[in-house]
Design a binder for these strands. Structure first.
Lengths: 194, 194
DNA sequence: TTGACAGGTTATCAGTCGATGCCTACCGTC
DNA sequence: GACGGTAGGCATCGACTGATAACCTGTCAA
């Protein structure tokens, strides 16, 4: 019937595609602010299909959030696998930080994490967010650094999250104080993101 | 008609009350996830009245977000006004941090800020969030500390925001890594919050 | 050839939401 | 004591949303 044959996918491939579509869609509007129809359009399928594939909108969001956290975690794991890591070596922390700023460049992962944190009024979402953060912290802690060093690193990451989510890096000329904070937080990574 | 005479308020008093109600309501569900009807019930007035008082739901949220940011800013200003501040004195930073953890105890300010950050897909909300963050940073920077010191302080604050929003402090027994991060982030403030 | 399963759609619904219009009741003032 | 302005409610609307049900269709085994 349709001129372009609708590509039939295996359920697994389709699920993967829907998760990616959900990542992009939820990134913009968050859990409550994004309709399942937007996710469907993003993926090029019908809205009921999205809902049925995951059972509910909530379950879809939970899996998208998990995907985002896992992506961050894997990026860190890759850095640690690439070369030995010395917690007392600032350059090694730089490699880890660089992996994170690279990840934040596409914005979708970042925003889904932020929405996950914020939407933690829903206990199920909160639980998934805790699991994700715990796993990420565990990887950082596995370097053998002190708790304080790991905490400091994560804290810097959370600041980057916030600054990027409010698009501080795109408005450096509006507020001098905020611009100073932005420059200090991003350092030389600022050019990459703009 | 009604047995209990409905207290008529001046428009200013009512506006103030609605902002407080909005703070509590939006704290739970965020911008998209909270109906104007919930705000109305929280304040004990009718839904249309809430909308008409602020013109739109968005304008209400913007003002609530501004209120939350201003409250944080004022808390810092109070600390700096109370006693001289030496950026090289860890105890002075402790006073500032203590003011923040005290503020976070009621959760509403915190969550509204997080929702404001996350809802920054809406450019107007993003702008208001940038203004709020800029003002808060300006107060911290006014101590004469270095940009790095201020950035470090704000970063710690953002981590506290995230940990509290996902209720990490209420689930210390579930995930060892997350518990370690929580304890390290909150330090002795942990008891106050639980 | 047939049939059954899996991928996917269309139609539809019951509920919710933000907003608007119109009405009422209270209060100060002349 | 009439009157006008303002606080605030009530009814209602049109748009949207998540979910369900029923149906269609390509593919592969027997």
């Amino acid at each position: 019937m349709s001129t372009e044959t609708r590509a039939r996918m295996s359920a697994d491939d389709r699920r993967e595609q829907l998760l990616r579509a959900g990542l992009r869609a939820f990134s913009r509007g968050g859990y409550a602010g994004t309709s399942t129809d937007e996710v469907a359009r993003e993926a090029g399928v019908s809205q009921p299909y999205v809902v049925r594939t995951f059972g509910s909108k909530q379950e879809l969001f939970l899996q998208v959030l998990e995907l985002a956290c896992a992506e961050v975690r894997r990026a860190f794991e890759r850095v640690l696998a690439d070369a030995p890591f010395d917690p007392e070596e600032p350059e090694d922390w730089g490699r880890l930080g660089h992996a994170y700023t690279d990840l934040l460049a596409d914005r979708d992962l970042l925003m889904v994490m932020m929405h996950g944190f914020a939407a933690s009024g829903d206990e199920q979402i909160a639980a998934r967010a805790r699991a994700g953060m715990g796993a990420i912290y565990a990887v950082v802690a596995s370097t053998g650094c002190t708790d304080e060093q790991a905490e400091e690193f994560i804290a810097q990451g959370m600041l980057l999250n916030v600054m990027l989510s409010i698009r501080a890096h795109e408005h450096l000329d509006e507020s001098l104080p905020l611009a100073a904070l932005t420059r200090c937080a991003f350092g030389e990574a600022l050019e990459v993101l703009t």
